[in-house]
Amino acid sequence: MGQVVFLSFPRRRESRYLKLDSRLRGNDKYNKMSTIYILWLRQLKRYVRSKQRMFASLAQPLLFLFAFGFGFGSTFAKAGEGSYIQFLAPGIIAMTVMFTAVFSGIEIIWDKQFGFLKETLVAPVSRFNIMLGRTLGGTTVAFIQGIIVLLITLLAGFKPALSGVPLAIVFMFLLALFFTAFGTMIASKLDDMQSFPLIINFLVMPLFFLSGALFPIVGLPTVFNIIVHANPLSYAVDGIRGALIGQHVFSFGLDALILFVIAFVCLYIGAEFFKRIQA
């Protein structure tokens, strides 16, 4: 055992030397930034190149927008709730961001199966930065999809308060970050492509239906009320809807706080899980 101690001593000195050396070269920080950037850029390029995926992931929100919007519009108005499209559009935007974000996790499983993940895992960059670059890439893609759907809802007759758009964008971004990190978390633990959508749908669909995206969350039975309040998506929907049409259940402060906290918790857990991947 004494030998082990002896062996590890010079090694540690050597490692400090290496760190010092790279600081002298001055590219350590540059390396971190550019690794995150290049992995972010990769996600974006893949997104732009895959037109099919882009359109396919717009199909679901459009279906919801038209089926619910035109289906329930008159019932909604008769119940004295005003224009349903005004109410629904922010929910559909949130839904798009959420689903695109969470499903970006599948790219990790994809990269595991097609081998590219190994290439990043043997590179001399921290796994946290690899995870961060990928997650920010997925976040950006989900965010862009949300903007596209926002534009589509305008065509469908949605009239948001323009002054609220910047704030809505902040909430969309936080929502995208949260669910991309969540998807990363799940994907880091899975090996096969088939189980990912099943698990995600099982976890995320209930969140979606009980978030106030499709119907108002006031005056619900107690059980549902508790679930709605425990559901982080409710706060994102509330923030986006509050910003765009001024209709609030909570407050911007609470919405932002909860999304911030949960996004960073998921990012942290996601990073821990990602670090443990053995390829």
Binding site: R42, R46, R49, S50, G115, F116, K118, E119
Partner: peptide
């Protein structure tokens, strides 16, 4: 690597 590890979409 023995198995492919390039990104085929790039």
């Amino acid at each position: 690597f023995q198995d492919p590890s390039v990104d085929t979409e790039m």
